[in-house]
Write a protein that binds this DNA or RNA. Structure first.
Lengths: 295, 295
DNA sequence: CACGTTCTGAAATTTCTGATACAGCTTTTG
DNA sequence: CAAAAGCTGTATCAGAAATTTCAGAACGTG
C-alpha cells in the first residue's frame, strides 16, 4: 500500500536547510515496508507525529515499536530521543525565523472605556481603508521600493513619532533611508542635497505644522517627490504632494487618533518588504546577526 | 469611489481556541514565585520550552523539578505528559491553519493586501481589548494621573517611537514627563535620580531588547513603579513590572504590528486627559497660545 | 519574636518509555 | 521447491523520567 503516490505533499518550498523530511522522501525507496509506513505517517503529519512516544507512533503507523526504533536508527539518529530533539529544533527554527504565527486569544471582560475607544479606532481603520485609492497605495509602494530613490521621513509634533517608526523599519529593509527633524534650523542646510532622486514622506494631521509644510514645499520646489499621510481634511502639504494617503483620525478623546496612519505605515512596510524581499531578506538577516553578536 | 466590495466581514479573527498562553498570563498574579519563573520561561519560548523533559525545563527556569510539576498541575493538567500533549496539539493546530512562510510567494496586489492587512490589525485590536483586565487598565490610568509622580517613557528599537508618541502627548497634559533613550550610556547617570516617586512606562515587544530590560530592572530596584506595554508573550520586564498591558501584534507581514500598543497608548492618553481635565485644559490652552505666538 | 502557613528542593519511589534479544514469518534466490 | 536471507512482532529488560514524600526554608502574622 505504499504506492509512491504520496506525491501530493505540497509542503513548504524547498527548505533552505536540508530538512529531515526531504531526506526521508529521497530515501523512501530504500526503506523496508514497515519503515515506509513509519515514513508516510511522519511525512503526513510532519513533524508532529514524531513528537509522541514510540508506542503511540508505532500504533498510529500500524507497526511495532521496534520497527519504529529501527526506522529512526536508519535515519542516522542515536535513538528516539535524539530523533525527537532534531524534530523540535527544526520546528522551532522554522517557526521562529520568518515570523511566528500568532497566539490566539480568548474571551475576557472588556474595559468599558477602552472597549468603546477601540471600536471608534476600528471604525477609523475601516473608513481609512475604504477611502484609499488602490492605485495610489500601489504607486506609493512602487515609489518606496525603488532602490535608486532616497527616502526621507518627517512629521510634526505628534506625528514625528510615526515618521520615526516608519524610518526604523524601512532603514532595515532598504538603504538610503533617514529621518528629518521638523525644525527648519535642522534641515535648512540639508536641502541643498535634495533633488529629483529624493522622496519625502511626510506625516501631518490637523493643527498642521508650518515648519513641516515649509520643508515639503522647499523639497518639492527642488524636484523631490512628496508623499503625504494626513487626515481627511488634507494638510496644506497636499498641494505639493505627488501622492496623498488620508486616514480617519477622530476618536472619543481630546486628541486625534493616529492609528489609521500607523495602519498605512505598517501596510506600506509590509508591502515594500515583500516587494524587495530578495534584497531585504539578507539585510534583515545581517541586522539579526549584528544584534546577536553584540549580546 | 472604490467600493471595495468586501462588504460584510464580521468574522472573529481571534476567538479561536483559548490558548494556554493566554490563561497563564491571566493567572500570573496567583502564581508563587517559582511558578512565575516557570511561566515566564514557558511564555518567552512558547511553546518549545515545554516540550523538553521536566528536568531540562526545571534547570532552564532555575527551579526544581517538583516546582515544575506543581506548576503544570495548577494549570489543570493531570501530569507533565498531559501538559506536553496539549502543547503539541495547540502548536499543530496553529501551524496548520496559516502559511508559515512569507517570502515572495504570491503576487502583490495593493488594495486587497491593504484590506486584509487592515482586517488582521482590527483582529489584533479586538483581541487586545478583550484580554486587558479592566482593573489593570484603570490602575495604570490612576498611576499616570497622579501629579506627584514623575513619568518616564522608554522603548526598544521600534517601540521607542511609540514611547515618544506617548511622551509628546502626556507632556502637554501634565508635568514631570520625559523620554529616556534605551542605550545604557544615556540613562546610567540619570538613574541616581530615580526612586519611589518615579514611574517607568516601557514599550517592549518580541526580540526583547536587553538594554530596555536592564533599565527597568535598575529602576525597579530603586523603587520605581514599572508599567509595561508588551506582546502576549510578555517581555522579561514583566518580572519587575507592577502593571502589564499586553497587545496582540501578529500581522500578515514580516514585521509585527504595533497598532495594539498604539491603541492602548491613545486610550491611556484619553483617559488621563479626562481625569486631569481641570489642570490639563489650561495647559493645553497655554501650549496653543505659545504655538500661535511663534508663528 | 514566636508561631503557623506556605513554599521549595533533595531524595526516595513509581511509572513508563525506549531499547534489545529472539523466534516466527515472508520473501527471495538458486 | 528448498534453503537462505531479510523483516517483523512478542516478550522482556534496563534505565530514565515523572511523581510523591518529607523536611527544611522563607514568609507573613499576631
Amino acid at each position: 500500500m505504499n504506492q509512491s503516490g504520496m506525491g501530493d505533499d505540497h509542503r513548504l518550498p524547498p527548505a533552505d536547510p536540508p530538512s529531515l523530511a526531504e531526506r526521508i522522501r529521497l530515501d523512501m525507496e530504500s526503506f523496508t515496508p514497515s519503515e515506509k509506513r513509519a515514513a508516510h505517517l511522519l511525512l503526513s503529519h510532519y513533524p508532529f507525529a514524531g513528537l509522541d512516544t514510540v508506542a503511540e507512533f508505532a500504533s498510529r503507523a500500524g507497526i511495532s515499536a521496534p520497527s519504529v526504533l529501527r526506522f529512526v536508527t536508519r535515519l542516522g539518529f542515536g535513538g528516539f530521543p535524539d530523533f525527537q530533539k532534531h524534530l523540535r529544533e527544526e520546528l522551532e527554527a522554522q517557526l521562529l525565523s520568518p515570523l511566528a504565527k500568532a497566539g490566539p486569544s480568548d474571551k475576557g471582560q472588556g474595559a468599558p472605556a477602552l472597549a468603546s475607544f477601540a471600536e471608534a479606532v476600528i471604525g477609523n481603520l475601516r473608513a481609512t481603508v475604504e477611502n484609499i485609492a488602490p492605485a495610489e497605495f500601489d504607486a506609493v509602494v512602487a515609489l518606496l521600493s525603488d532602490p535608486r530613490r532616497y527616502i526621507h521621513f518627517t512629521g510634526g509634533r505628534f506625528t514625528g513619532a510615526l515618521a520615526r517608526y516608519a524610518e526604523s523599519h524601512f532603514r532595515i529593509v532598504r538603504s538610503h533611508v533617514d529621518f528629518i527633524e521638523g525644525q527648519p534650523a535642522l534641515w535648512r542646510d540639508r536641502m541643498i542635497e535634495i533633488g529629483r532622486k529624493d522622496v519625502i514622506v511626510a506625516f501631518d494631521i490637523r493643527r498642521y505644522q508650518e515648519d513641516v509644510t515649509a520643508l515639503c514645499e522647499t523639497a518639492a520646489k527642488q524636484g523631490a517627490t512628496v508623499v503625504l499621510l494626513t487626515d481627511p481634511w488634507l494638510s496644506p502639504i497636499a498641494r505639493v504632494a505627488r501622492h496623498v494617503l488620508p486616514a480617519h483620525i477622530v476618536a472619543p478623546s481630546n486628541w486625534d487618533s493616529s492609528a489609521g496612519l500607523l495602519l498605512l505605515t505598517e501596510a506600506l512596510v509590509a508591502a515594500v518588504t515583500k516587494r524587495l524581499w530578495e534584497t531585504a531578506k539578507p539585510r534583515m538577516e545581517a541586522v539579526e546577526r549584528l544584534r546577536n553578536e553584540r549580546s
